[in-house]
Amino acid sequence: MTSSDPAGHPQLGPPLAGIRVLDLSQVMSGPLCGRALADLGAEVIKVESPAGDITRTVPPFVDGNGLYFTHVNAGKRGITVDVRNAEGAALVRRMALQSDVVLENFRPGVLERRGLGADQLLAEHPRLVYCSISGWGQQGPWAQRRAYAPLVHAQAGRIELTSRLRGEPPRQEVHVHADIYTSFMAVSAILAAIVQRERTGFGQHLDVAMGDALLYTDEWASTDLAGYGPDRVMDIWNHVILPLADGSSVTLVGSPVRMFDRWVAALGGTAIDPTPSDDDALAIITTLVAKVPDYQTFETLLENEPMLVAEVRSVAELAETDWAIERNVFAEVHPGARVPRAPFRSRHATIGVTADAPHPGEHTDSVLRSVLGLDDAAIAHLRSTGAVR
């Protein structure tokens, strides 16, 4: 905190420096939460079984790690422990008692059978923040229900709503929304619990359910609970996307039919009186847009108009824009492996990814030495019993 900005405000370093997170989670809902905490400066230790996180197998691969895995595990230290082994479970327990946060997304009851449940650890470590992510909560009639993001999409209304409003058959989502939203709900919950711990001296058990997260982030949930019909004012799913002459596409905000005359004039068309039907008006605008050679020309034609448009881009194309380059949006954590650098920026705190994702068991020895003070003989014994790899 020695340097400062022109206003004299000190540079604060990483917000979560000194916080240790034991990340027992796998796949997406927990690991993305752990990645965010690491980006905020926490020491995040990812504990994997000997089989490894299944997302390690998702191609493409860079330096042996799947990029899907790298995306949500960059910046963590990685150890391999078999919690089915009694010594392995005891080892994880000792590490949890030396941590500020435990993050897990096992089915409720699984970790309790290994002596690693929330109540068991909080009894010895009352300052611990223990975050459990599940499909439908830690108790109740659906606690043991299998919960993968595609299933929760179906059961929590997302697929039905999309189908109803688009007037199309139900189909699955491209992104694992249930996992992603739950991850960031868990981040918020953990940060709130850490703040509360500073006031009260006590940690707590956090119950973060994918079902809750999907409903909380469904802006139409209250509307649908009221039984309101299919017509919506904020109907962005009806905003049209049209092709340009070069094969690229543009998205238009709102219905262009409502400003038909301005669209025709801006795109060099011939005024039509009376205004055609909505279907015919859209067809005319589509034809005019298709004659525009490229997006730069399209944007120039509309620069003095109130219509809002944007080019449809891929992530790779966005990465080459001046915005992404100037903002330093992506970080290359290993040659050929780029990930989004940070969830947000701060003028005064250090935010963002600091390292590649770990290889299987990459930091087992160093973590056991630094966290538990084990020596080479003790680590060798754990390996001989199959507790660690």
Rank of each mutant, 00 (worst) to 15 (best):
S132C: 11
G254T: 06
Y68R: 09
D224L: 14
S3E: 09
D235Y: 02
L12R: 03
L103W: 05
W220A: 14
D82N: 13
I241H: 14
V129E: 09
A96K: 07
I133K: 15
I236C: 00
L301A: 01
G34T: 02
D100L: 04
L288Q: 10
D179W: 08
A342L: 01
G117E: 04
G52F: 02
M95Q: 01
L122C: 13
A265F: 12
P31N: 01
Q120V: 00
H71S: 11
E326I: 02
L40F: 08
R93P: 00
W136F: 15
P358F: 00
G167F: 02
T223Q: 15
L215K: 01
E303T: 12
V83F: 13
V367L: 12
R262T: 11
P169L: 14
I45K: 01
L308Q: 11
I284D: 06
W136H: 15
R84G: 08
L215D: 06
R35H: 01
P335N: 03
H9M: 03
L282V: 09
V92T: 06
V367C: 13
G34S: 07
R347E: 02
A319L: 12
M210N: 12
P306N: 13
V81R: 05
V195C: 14
D231H: 14
H177C: 02
A266Y: 03
D207R: 12
P169Y: 04
E160Q: 15
D261C: 07
A357T: 03
L191W: 07
M210F: 11
P276C: 15
L214I: 06
I285F: 04
L103G: 02
T217Y: 05
G268F: 07
S25R: 00
L302S: 09
V253T: 15
A209R: 08
A96Q: 09
N304W: 03
P293L: 13
M210E: 05
A209S: 13
G352R: 05
S248K: 15
Y68V: 10
P150D: 13
G386H: 03
P340E: 09
I285E: 11
A156H: 09
R199Q: 11
W263R: 14
P230Y: 08
L382F: 13
T354P: 01
Q138F: 07
P150Q: 14
L242M: 14
D375M: 13
E362C: 10
R262L: 06
G167H: 10
E317G: 11
T80S: 14
D63P: 05
A186H: 06
L374N: 11
T350A: 14
E104C: 00
D5E: 00
L191R: 06
V152L: 15
K76D: 02
I351P: 00
R158I: 15
I19T: 06
T80C: 14
L128R: 15
D23H: 09
G254M: 10
A337W: 04
D294C: 05
K291L: 00
T286M: 05
